[in-house]
């Protein structure tokens, strides 16, 4: 395997493997938030705001993988 193909392979793997954790995390986060909204609809506003904060923080992990993939393809 030459350096270029190793680089492209690493980019694909980093994006694919790096998405597993955030996807699981987002699923858990949103399912729990929906569950608590269904239990207590009167505080749904608060739960939704906190859910979005959590989404932002969790999703960032996948985006780091995306940035690493971009660096591998275009910069390294």
């Amino acid at each position: 395997m030459d350096a270029d193909s190793a680089r492209l392979l690493a980019a694909g793997i980093s994006m694919g493997v790096g998405s597993i954790g955030p996807a699981l995390g987002l699923g858990m986060l949103i399912s729990k938030a929906l569950e608590s909204i269904a239990r207590q609809p009167e505080v749904s506003g608060d739960i939704r705001v906190n859910m979005f904060i959590g989404i932002g923080v969790t999703e960032a992990v996948a985006l780091y993988a995306f940035v690493v993939a971009l660096i591998l393809i275009f910069v390294a």
């Binding site: 999703e59 960032a60 985006l63 780091y64 940035v67 971009l70």
Partner: peptide
Amino acid sequence: SVRLFANMLA
């Protein structure tokens, strides 16, 4: 910064 940048770029 990376969150906003990477989201819009992607």
